[in-house]
Design a protein around this nucleic acid. Structure first.
Lengths: 204, 204
DNA sequence: ACCTGAACACCGTTCAAGT
DNA sequence: ACCTGAACACCGTTCAAGT
């Protein structure tokens, strides 16, 4: 008679998958385990998502959106100094990577063959970094500087979570050293394009 | 009668697995596909490796060893200037990441739950970086500086290979900017521990 | 000592049948 | 319109039997 109402939803399915990812890594994200978490049988999931690959993509997008919100909030609450804005964003990313290490590891691991949507979401998460970088090095070099900063923070947190820093020493100090050195070095770098009133001037 | 001689070997199996990884990603590394490549049936592989997880670990170790050799050779062939040594190592890593993108992506992705051996191998690949960092910032800060440099290069190449840099601009320029800024910033950083003849002096 | 076919458990996915 | 059991193909792994 009346069609049965949905017993779950795409959002619940994605949440369950993300929780399983964090608890046991990608291999723990089986369709049966996800289904059990949302109180349904595995075949029902296909009414909400195309297949397992799309589910993992959705998890990555979900994590990227959360990261984007965190970065935006952090940016809004930071002071005017470019260096401290960048440091605040770096610390915020590191906190995210600690809260959701497996999601963070998966953030930039796949993008290539995805639906294309992740790229937009990642761009939104990157926007506050580009803004802060622009304050430090000017608009022309902002994108390159943001790539540099993002690479360092992503690389550092990924290696840290993977347990790659096992030779002793303070990992916190190394992180601070990296952020400070980058801020200093980027500010000092010759971007070869700002002269006088800021109009573009190509390098010789 | 006479026991049959081995029709394949652990090394061949690992090579086949690594080739499959590069061609189709981790999901392409099935026991059947590996077996077919070395001319054997899937069950025979278990005479050479414990299981699929151990096989993937062995692939990562194999890649890390190759990287270690590349870094050592690069280090031996580089000049005396700390900055150009570091730049040469960074370029060598990036070339490795282009030759073997999936192996590179997997290098620091798992270490945590592995056999423990990968850590030693990774340490060997990192040694030339620590040496070069010591020339730049002194022995006390060398480990931290090496972590910073490695994080940037690993993060940058991983994101680059994942297709994360899609907002235009020169990716090569960004890489150069990162290396140069780090070298400059690390050299300028206050490590709070070198005074006069280099004896350790804690920060105030 | 290594290789094999057969077998088993598990997983992703499809589909006809239920409500 | 969503949910389900049954079924299928595929995969990792074990094991007894071959040489």
């Amino acid at each position: 008679m009346s069609p049965t109402p949905a017993r779950t939803s795409r959002a619940r399915v994605v949440d369950a998958a993300r929780a399983l990812l964090e608890e046991g890594g990608p291999e723990a994200v089986t369709m049966a385990a996800v289904a059990q978490r949302v109180g349904v049988r595995a075949p029902s999931l296909y009414k909400h998502i195309r297949d397992r690959a799309a589910l993992l993509d959705a998890v990555a997008i979900d994590a990227a959106e959360e990261l984007g919100r965190t970065m935006t909030v952090t940016s809004a609450g930071a002071g005017a100094d470019p260096g401290s804005r960048i440091a605040a964003l770096a610390v915020a990313y590191r906190a995210f990577a600690r809260r959701s290490p497996r999601s963070a590891a998966v953030l930039f691991a796949d993008l290539g063959h995805g639906t294309g949507a992740p790229v937009e979401v990642a761009a939104r998460a990157a926007a506050p970094v580009i803004d802060a970088a622009a304050l430090l090095v000017g608009p022309e070099a902002a994108l390159a500087a943001a790539r540099v900063l993002t690479s360092f923070v992503y690389g550092f947190t990924t290696m840290e979570q993977a347990g790659a820093f096992q030779l002793g020493g303070s990992v916190d100090d190394a992180f601070r050293l990296g952020v400070e050195s980058l801020v200093r070095g980027l500010a000092a770098a010759d971007h070869g394009m700002r002269v006088g009133d800021g109009r573009l001037n190509p390098p010789a």
